[in-house]
Write a protein that binds this DNA or RNA. Structure first.
Lengths: 267, 267
DNA sequence: TTGTGTGAAGGGTTTCACAGCT
DNA sequence: AGCTGTGAAACCCTTCACACAA
């Protein structure tokens, strides 16, 4: 997760936990699938399985929305679809602009699940004059000179940044200045925005690195099945205990659970 | 966030919290930028600002890795880059396959930050015979019939799924059967995998829906600045209090904080 | 009898604030 | 004097387990 700025200090009741909000789209997707198969009701158990969570969590989540659901029976699918949609603000439609129409921008523009659920691609914007007018996914690309005009004319409040990292901040600044208050950032940079603007980021490289971390763990686990896998370092010890490594040492006492810096850096 | 399966019940010491792991790539990126500018040391304050977190969190995070850093001075940039890289498992290289070479798959294949940090695109795989042999981002696409062979020959343990949702689960099953133990899923589906396999997902539509939720909140806030914004529903009340709405009612007593279902569903 | 709704317990994460090293 | 490293407090989220409604 990664929302940019504050979200008010929980105004007492009616404050749905952020973790719950993040799962509502999951439930909605599962419910929509059930709805299409004309399933009238689901139990928390079934729906939870379809959404990939456990049923206690799902029930807790729904309890924040209200007491939809019937004891002994389950939840009315259509009714829940509507309630969650409303809660998420999907009963109105949200015009969205995508800035940066490279491979990724094009992929996003063509993404189906987009139009389907309350979102509408209002404009595609790119800085390359050669792109201007070229249709991508059926929508003509507009030049970034017109960014402000597009935003204000269409009343766009959500912007997607799919530009190179180098220009992401300035694109962001222009979007915000023009009135955008929610940004989905695909560029691998930290964006800074004023209070009241939400930023969420999607970052391939971060996700891969997290996977690599766990992958490495698995590899280290094949040997030393029971006890604490890696060698060195006792649990409670706050002591020094410098590991016997090759580092081009200068002074003493840098400690760490394992491995010191090698003479030649691999990066 | 969304890792698929369990992560062992925290084997006592040496267990870096998941939240910390998720931030290490952020620190690493900020540090790499400093390193390129030949900055020798940073304080927790400066680095935290660059990574978009607060300094207390950063220091806590680093404390799980060990006591790198010098009181009164800060952290040695190069040294930290190495330590974090090692912790994340980026000192070895990870061959990755991308399955599904549409717009998105192509974007991922061409993504720069990929090769740079320990990851190597070992193969691009697509089910469309017309794609076979065609180079994308300089790498020839291979047919999905050869998926198992490719995985085992290259010792691939990380797979990226960029296929349509409909085939994602079967692709996932084949990847896992062939030996992949970490999956990054871009398809909008819940994947089920056996224990020991990690799944992380990236989902545009979910991110947008979360933004829409907050966007809706902001809109509702312009009026009713001080008190609890929305009408209806007292804090402590567990009571019924059915709202005066139009729902094609059948029986009594469905309650919720606000709004009932309209006669005509918008979705 | 079935399955929701929810207090209470249990973990995990963030923030605070300051002791301690340089 | 400055900045790290870390117990302790506060907060948030998840899980448990059961009362209660249909």
């Amino acid at each position: 997760m990664a929302t940019g700025r504050t979200h008010r200090p929980a105004t007492r009741s009616r404050g749905i936990p952020e973790a719950t909000v993040a799962r509502l789209p999951l439930y909605l997707r599962a419910l929509t699938a059930l709805s299409e198969r004309s399933v009238p009701t689901v139990s928390s158990e079934e729906l939870a399985a379809a959404a990939g969570v456990n049923s206690a969590k799902l029930r807790k989540d729904f309890s924040y929305l209200g007491s939809y659901g019937t004891r002994g029976v389950g939840y009315d699918v259509e009714y829940l679809v509507y309630q969650i949609s409303r809660e998420l603000g999907l009963t109105q439609d949200w015009p969205v602009v995508i800035v940066g129409i490279g491979n990724l921008g094009a992929a996003l523009a063509g993404y189906g699940g987009f139009a389907s659920r309350g979102f509408r691609v209002a404009a595609l914007i790119d800085a390359d004059p050669a792109m201007t007018g070229k249709p991508v996914a059926g929508i003509p690309v507009q030049h970034s000179d017109d960014l402000e005009k597009i935003i204000s004319e269409d009343g766009v409040s959500i912007g997607v940044i799919a530009t190179p990292a180098g220009v992401a901040q300035q694109v962001c600044d222009r979007l915000v200045a023009a009135g955008v208050t929610s940004i989905l950032n695909f560029a691998p940079t930290v964006l800074s925005v004023p209070d009241g603007v939400d930023v969420r980021k999607v970052d391939l490289s971060i996700e891969l690195q997290i996977l690599a971390f766990h992958e490495q763990r698995k590899a280290g686990e094949e040997l030393g099945a029971e006890a604490g896998a890696e060698p060195s370092a006792e649990p409670g010890a706050t002591a020094a205990a410098v590991p016997p490594a090759a580092r081009a040492a200068e002074d003493a006492g840098r400690k760490g659970p394992d491995g010191d810096m090698p003479a030649v850096m691999p990066a």
